[in-house]
Simulated assay, not measured.
Amino acid sequence: MIYVFLLGFMSPTLFLAAFLKKGSNKNKVIRSFNWLYFGISIASFLIMLIFMIIYSVEEANKISTLYPLFVWLWMVFLLSRCFEIFYAFLRDALDKITGKSSVGRVNFPTITKYYILWIKLSSDKGEVSKLDSFLRYLLNLKIRFLSWLPFKDKVNGADLRNHDRLILSFRSYFELILNFALIYSLLPADNWSGEKILNIIQATYFSGVTITTLGYGDIYPKQWFSQFLSIFEVLCGFTLIVVCLAIYLKDDPDQQKKDSLTSLEPDKNQP
């Protein structure tokens, strides 16, 4: 599980989001991927539920032992997405408090500095051209990938207002419940109090109880990985509900300025 932990918290989905938003309509990418990941979570939950209904409980519980590499990659993706949600909303909330703008922000300044330093120190123009060709290839892949997104033409690309952020946070909150439930259902039996693998219904129940900090105690984690996941889920839920809602429910000062300027403009329809 240590590899799942390390790879998940390196958050490849966070790097992917930063790469796709660079040079694109950031707000459109955020809305599109919020829906895309939410749909993936629901589809994964339904697949697990159908699997549990069709097969016996014993057979359904064996899903965590099938194709270990696939299960591990699936857990890495889910954990990465949970960390991305936690980081993105916490960072946005801090920006709202301090009044900072994300426009023109360099997402990975250290990597950018090392890249610029390598360009300056490199004396082989062939290596620089190869790297530039590789970066252009990645850019073409990004353009193709964004063009394949479903309903891309119907997604709103306007600036995010506070009510938009509330919608995104609620959708992400339910996505967190499903993502953690899927991870819990994939963990081995020795992670849980009953020494049994949780089916998707039990895992969703435990995930909901954990993220809402109810903690009934009828199901509880025993191993370090499941214990850490439970704590991390509480932190994610606290970030979205307490921190973000407290900030997003306030009036947006930037939007108030725009509305006030709009109200001062003369009505062109009036004679």
Rank of each mutant, 00 (worst) to 15 (best):
N179A: 13
G194S: 08
F180I: 14
S56R: 15
D153W: 06
T239H: 06
A17Q: 11
E59C: 00
G157V: 06
W35E: 06
L131N: 06
K96S: 12
G237C: 03
Q202W: 01
Y37S: 11
I201V: 15
Y216E: 03
L121W: 09
L66E: 10
K250E: 05
G104R: 02
P188K: 11
S80H: 12
A246M: 13
G104N: 01
L78K: 08
Y173L: 09
R171M: 08
F174P: 03
S56W: 04
F33E: 09
P266I: 07
D267F: 14
M75L: 04
G215R: 06
P221D: 00
I241F: 13
L135P: 03
I40Q: 07
Y220V: 05
I116W: 04
S185N: 10
Y173T: 03
M1Y: 12
L176K: 03
I47L: 10
N27M: 13
F108H: 00
L139T: 11
K113R: 06
I219M: 09
I97A: 09
F70C: 09
L182K: 00
T210N: 10
I200V: 15
A17R: 05
P68I: 10
V128M: 13
M10Y: 14
G39V: 12
S230E: 09
L49H: 01
K268M: 15
L6C: 08
K250Q: 10
G157E: 07
K154T: 09
L49E: 00
K120C: 13
K258M: 11
Y216S: 13
R144I: 14
E58H: 06
R105V: 15
I241G: 01
K100D: 04
L16P: 01
G8M: 02
N162K: 01
N25A: 14
D164C: 04
Y216T: 12
A158T: 06
T212I: 08
Y114E: 00
S133T: 13
L240S: 03
